[in-house]
């Protein structure tokens, strides 16, 4: 589990890379940390892994204080760094064995974990080759395997699938989902918003070192994009003038065979809306929620943030 309060980091006495970040990620949850390059994602992750000492605030990771117990924190966290950071003259299996030793795994466990991870990421055949000969994607997969070698309780993943081919990305995502289901706590820093939406339960958007927005994805969509929108498609032209809309429903777009509604409480209103449509002779072909993506949330949030910055 990860808890952080008012986590802040100042560099050179005059630049706050991260300011007042508070997070709470429970076991079995994934938080996607989103933001532009240089927004403070990596600095936040480095503080959570006790690599940088916070200038202000505190954080507890896997039950340990990042300031008082940095070694314990690092023992219980698996980190995938922005750069793969492989030793290019080591072979794949030597590399995993080395980090297994670093994390003080027994010989049997090291071997078992290395065999499992190499096999899982499809690197078994390349295990005896020097990592310098690996393709970019293979290097990324091996780096991911390194982060998982000690089966950590907490995972901090910086761009976990960048440079991976679609198949490998899928494998990585599956492994992250599996880890989530086995009660691991995970933070992903990514620019891949589709991936973040697929994997994350919670999202935090960071801008110039400050968290602009954070929460469950549905909440954020509602908060940023407004109430949910639903679209009804009709078999033939339909005149909605006579339609008696239930409270909390508003028509936001229309053409001859479609109507789009903004609905405050879909759970309670939708049954009566559908009933109203059919009772008024509408031949409804489909009634569905208009998909709203994390990308929209992100872009809208950044737009507002930039407007505020310029205004200031």
């Amino acid at each position: 589990m990860i808890e952080a309060y008012d986590l802040s980091k100042e560099f050179n006495g005059n630049f706050w890379a991260v300011e007042g970040v508070s997070l709470n990620v429970q076991a079995g949850q994934i938080l996607a940390l989103l933001g532009q390059n240089g927004a403070g994602k990596t600095t936040t992750v480095r503080m959570l892994n006790a690599l940088l000492t916070p200038t202000r605030g505190w954080a507890r990771v896997a039950g340990y204080d990042v300031i008082k117990n940095p070694q314990e924190v690092r023992s219980n966290v698996g980190v995938l760094t922005e750069q793969h950071g492989l030793y290019v003259r080591m072979t794949g299996d030597e590399y995993l064995d080395y980090f297994g030793r670093v994390y003080r795994l027994s010989a049997e466990k090291r071997k078992a974990r290395a065999v499992y991870l190499l096999d899982y990421f499809g690197l078994t055949e390349a295990a005896k080759r020097r990592t310098g000969e690996y393709s970019k994607g293979m290097k990324q997969k091996l780096a991911m395997a390194r982060a998982l070698i000690h089966d950590p309780a907490v995972l901090l993943l910086d761009e976990p699938t960048s440079a991976m081919d679609p198949e490998a990305s899928r494998l990585a995502r599956d492994e992250i989902a599996r880890l989530k289901s086995s009660q691991r706590t995970i933070i992903i820093c990514t620019h891949n918003l589709v991936e973040a939406e697929t994997l994350a339960d919670h999202v935090a958007i960071i801008y110039r070192g400050k968290i602009l927005l954070s929460g469950a994805l549905d909440e954020l969509k509602r908060q940023v994009l407004g109430a949910a929108e639903y679209e009804a498609k009709f078999a033939e032209s339909y005149d909605a003038e006579a339609l008696d809309l239930p409270a909390g429903v508003e028509i936001v777009a229309r053409n001859a065979t479609r109507l789009r509604f903004r609905i405050e409480s879909p759970q309670t209103t939708n049954p009566s809306l559908v009933a109203a449509l059919t009772s008024r002779g509408a031949r409804v072909v489909s009634f569905y929620e208009v998909p709203r993506t994390l990308e929209q949330v992100y872009l809208r949030t950044m737009e507002r943030a930039q407007e505020t910055t310029y205004a200031e």
């Binding site: 892994n49 690599l51 070694q71 314990e72 690092r74 023992s75 966290v77 980190v79 760094t81 750069q83 793969h84 950071g85 492989l86 030793y87 290019v88 980090f99 670093v102 994390y103 003080r104 780096a143 390194r146």
Partner: peptide, 14 residues
């Protein structure tokens, strides 16, 4: 410079 230091620093080595 080679980018290999961070995994080492992320480890529990003192």
């Amino acid at each position: 410079e080679r980018g290999t230091i961070e995994p080492l620093l992320n480890s529990p080595l003192t």
